[in-house]
């Protein structure tokens, strides 16, 4: 049965809404800007040159750093968690995994907002510390890079735990027993068998956390309070406030390349059997 025509609607849709938009911003990123902010279709590298100015490079560096810290934190917190869950009984497992998914079902903005409520001067944490008498004046918990990292870890932790869990739960336990049988200590079993086998899940997790972390502007906006400018904030600002779409497009291109490189590097360690979310 020939069903090729079934793919036509999707092919058209993808062309119009996935491929052409990216071509448009690619073109924009090489376009000149008129004094009034209009786009002039003449080739230039100015937008990319502009990005090489120290303030923008600083933003780039900060974005990568914060995303890397959050991703590492997610891995360090999430891996043991995935392991613990994968070792409980099947019935319990489903509940524990469900508990990780439920927060994902609540609105992302509200989740981030919840931390604003907790961290602000009159928030629960400061109140609690004052009540205990540990501090007299409320601590400045909100509007700093630490709060941003916190928000990223909170929002993206499930993306790390779920793929690692899905690989670990499918792992053949006889492999672990075989390693023990061959005289490996539990530490060695982990280093030489469990961890290498869970790499596909770890890689999926790293990508799924790093990508939204490096491109977010909401978390840095709400929890960083404009003090912590990231690539995402820069793009948003260029598109909606400064109305310099050419520069905004150039930053987007740079970010896309950055993510592609990150995926390339990490997917080296990933084999066929993917440990995706699904």
């Amino acid at each position: 049965m020939n069903k090729k025509w079934l793919s036509i609607p999707y092919a058209l849709w993808s062309l119009i809404f996935s491929i052409i938009p990216i071509i448009i911003i690619t073109i924009y990123s090489f376009c000149k800007r008129s004094p009034y902010g209009k786009i002039i279709y003449e080739f230039t590298l100015d937008n990319y040159k502009q990005f090489l100015e120290p303030i923008y490079l600083n933003v780039l560096w900060r974005s990568i750093l914060l995303a890397a810290i959050s991703t590492t934190a997610c891995l360090v917190i999430g891996y043991p968690m995935a392991m613990i869950i994968s070792k409980t009984s099947i019935k319990k497992r489903n509940v524990l995994i469900m508990l990780f998914v439920v927060p994902l079902w609540t609105n992302f903005l509200l989740r981030t907002y919840a931390w604003m409520v907790l961290l602000r001067d009159q928030g629960a944490i400061n109140q609690f510390l004052i009540y205990l008498g540990i501090i007299k004046e409320p601590l400045q918990l909100l509007y700093n890079p630490g709060a941003v990292v916190m928000g990223m870890v909170y929002n993206f932790l499930p993306f790390m735990v779920l793929p690692i869990y899905s690989v670990l739960s499918k792992m053949d336990n006889s492999l672990v027993e075989a390693a023990q049988d061959l005289g490996a200590t539990s530490g060695e079993v982990f280093r030489k068998v469990i961890f290498p086998l869970s790499m596909p899940g770890v890689v999926s997790g790293l990508i799924m956390v790093f990508m939204p972390a490096v491109s977010t502007f909401v978390i840095s906006d709400l929890l960083g309070g404009g003090q912590t400018v990231l690539l995402g904030n820069l793009i948003q600002n260029q598109f909606l406030v400064a109305r310099n779409w050419q520069f905004g497009s150039a930053i987007s291109m740079i970010m896309m390349v950055l993510i592609l490189i990150a995926i390339r590097i990490s997917s080296k360690y990933q084999d066929e059997e993917g440990g995706g979310l699904w």
Binding site: A11, S14, I16, F17, S18, I19, I20, P21, I22, I24, I25, Y28, M211, P212, V214, S215, T216, F217, G232, I235, Q236, F239, W245, G248, S249, S252, M255, M256, I259, I263
Partner: peptide, 21 residues
């Protein structure tokens, strides 16, 4: 590969590129 574009692209890039479109 085409299917993975919107999955692998950061949301913000999807947003601004669609805005441009």
């Amino acid at each position: 590969n085409v299917t993975y574009i919107p999955v692998m692209n950061p949301d913000i890039v999807i947003g601004i590129s669609l805005l441009a479109l």
